[in-house]
Design a protein around this nucleic acid. Structure first.
Lengths: 232, 232
DNA sequence: GCAAAAGTGTTCACCGTACACCCATGG
DNA sequence: CCATGGGTGTACGGTGAACACTTTTGC
C-alpha cells in the first residue's frame, strides 16, 4: 500500500492505558507491551498503533489492543491527544489516547502478533523507562481515573458479580491510594441506591460472613438519566 | 510538497471553538468562518485547518485561528478528538479540537487569507447548518465550558480590568443560561479571596454606583497551588 | 420622586466527617 | 478463645439554598 499527499501529514496513532485490578484487590496494575522494534526496542510501552484510513479512533484503539494483548470488549474512554512533534524520534506522530479500567482476571493475555510481549505492571512501582512519552500519558490517565472515581461509580464492573461492601471499599482505596472511612463509605454507597442486596452471604470465610451485593445497572441508568450525581 | 507513505493515513486537522462575550455582557457568541471551498462551500464552520508536520497541535490551532480570523494569543484548551471516518466527505479526517472563551471586544476580526469571512454568532440562535459535524463539536464545547465554569473561575479575564460584582454575575448567568442568586453569588465569590476591592466606584451611572473589583491573579495562583477548589 | 441597580443577613435543611465498639465465624 | 474482618449510629460543623428590603444615584 502506498499513498501520496500534497502535503506531508503527521502519523496518527492510538494508545490505550489499561488499568487492571485483580479480584484479590491487592493493587492497581497497568498493561504494557514490550516493544519488538526500534525505536525503544525492548522497552515497555502502552499498547497502541497506527490508525487506518476508514476506521474510527475507538475502533483503531480496540483493534490495536486486541492485536497486541488479546484484550477485547473493553470500555474505552478518550483521554487526551498528544501531538508534540518530538515525541517520537522517527517522525511527527500524533497519538489519541484512551483509557479503561478492567478486571484483570477476566482477561488472558495473548502474545502479540509481532513478537510483542504483554504484561501487567503495578502502577505504584513506577517502571521508570517507558518508551516515548508514555510515562507522561500514564500519569495523565491515572489522574483522570482518580478524578472520575470521585464523581462516578467507576469500577463496580470490576468486582465479581456478587461482592461485599468491603471489597468495593478496597477498590476505592487502591485506586485513590488513600484510606476511606468504613461507615461513611457504606452510608453513601448504599444511599446511592444502585446496589441490590442479594440476601446471601459469603461462605467459607474464617470470620463473620459478609453480605453480598450486586450492581443494579438498571437503577443506575435510571438515576443517571435523571441527572443524579454519584459523588463519593 | 509531496510525501509518500507505506500506509495511507487519515488527515489531521485542528478546530477551534472560540466563545466570545462582549463587554456589554449581552449574550454568548461563537466565532465561525464561512467556507470558501467545497465541501460545504458557503456554510459556516468552526475555524481550523490541517496540522503541519513538525508543529504541535496547539501551535497548529493557534496558527489556523490567526490565519482565518486574525485572533491571536488566545488561551486554548483541548476539548476532544473526533475521528469518525465519515465526518468529512472527501476523506478520513481526524480533528483535534480546542476551545476558548475570550472578550469579544478585544479582538478585531480580519478577513481570512483565502477569502474566508469570519463572524461572531449568538450561541442561542443555533445556526442549524454548520459544515461537517461542527454542530456536534459546538455542543460538546458548550457543555464543557459550562462544566468548567462551575468548578473554576473561568471568565474573570473577560471582564474589563475593573468590574462590578453584577457584571461578574451576569457573565455566569449568560454562560450557564440560568439565573443566579445575587446574595449567595456575592458571598461565595468574595469568600474565594481572589478579588481585590479597588476602593473605587462606577461613574456616570444613573443608579447607585457599584464598587469596582479586580481579579487578584497572584492570590488565585497561590490558592490554586494549595489545592483550593473554586466551586460555584 | 422615581426608576434602576447596588448592597446586605438570616434561617433552615442537608451533608460530609469524625469517631469506637460489638458481632459472627473458622480454626 | 482468639484472630479476623463485618457490621452499626450519632453528634457536630459547615455549606448550599431560599428569601426581601433599604440605599444611592441621575434624571
Amino acid at each position: 500500500m502506498s499513498a501520496t499527499y500534497l502535503h506531508p501529514r503527521p502519523a496518527l496513532t492510538v494508545d490505550c492505558v489499561i488499568f487492571g485490578l485483580n479480584t484479590g484487590l491487592d493493587e492497581l496494575w497497568v498493561l504494557l507491551v514490550e516493544r519488538g522494534q526500534k525505536p525503544f526496542k525492548g522497552r515497555w510501552a502502552i499498547p497502541g498503533g497506527f490508525v487506518r484510513v476508514g476506521e474510527s479512533l475507538e475502533t483503531a484503539a480496540r483493534r490495536e489492543l486486541d492485536e497486541e494483548t488479546g484484550l477485547r470488549d473493553v470500555f474505552l474512554e478518550q483521554l487526551y491527544t498528544f501531538g508534540e512533534p518530538d515525541r517520537d524520534p522517527r517522525e511527527h506522530v500524533v497519538s489519541v489516547t484512551y483509557y479503561a479500567l478492567v478486571n484483570l482476571d477476566d482477561y488472558e493475555l495473548e502474545a502479540g502478533t509481532d513478537a510483542k510481549k504483554a504484561a501487567w505492571f503495578p502502577v505504584k512501582r513506577r517502571e521508570k523507562e517507558l518508551a516515548f512519552d508514555h510515562r507522561r500519558i500514564l500519569d495523565v490517565a491515572l489522574a483522570r481515573l482518580r478524578g472520575k472515581l470521585s464523581y462516578q461509580p467507576v469500577g463496580f464492573e470490576l468486582l465479581p458479580r456478587k461482592f461485599t461492601l468491603s471489597q468495593l471499599q478496597r477498590l476505592y482505596e487502591i485506586i485513590l491510594e488513600q484510606p476511606v472511612d468504613k461507615r461513611n463509605f457504606r452510608k453513601k454507597v448504599l444511599a446511592m441506591g444502585i446496589l441490590r442486596d442479594l440476601g446471601e452471604v459469603q461462605e467459607n470465610v474464617r470470620h463473620r460472613a459478609a453480605k453480598l451485593y450486586a450492581f443494579d445497572e438498571k437503577a443506575y441508568r435510571q438515576k443517571e438519566k435523571a441527572g443524579f450525581h454519584f459523588e463519593l
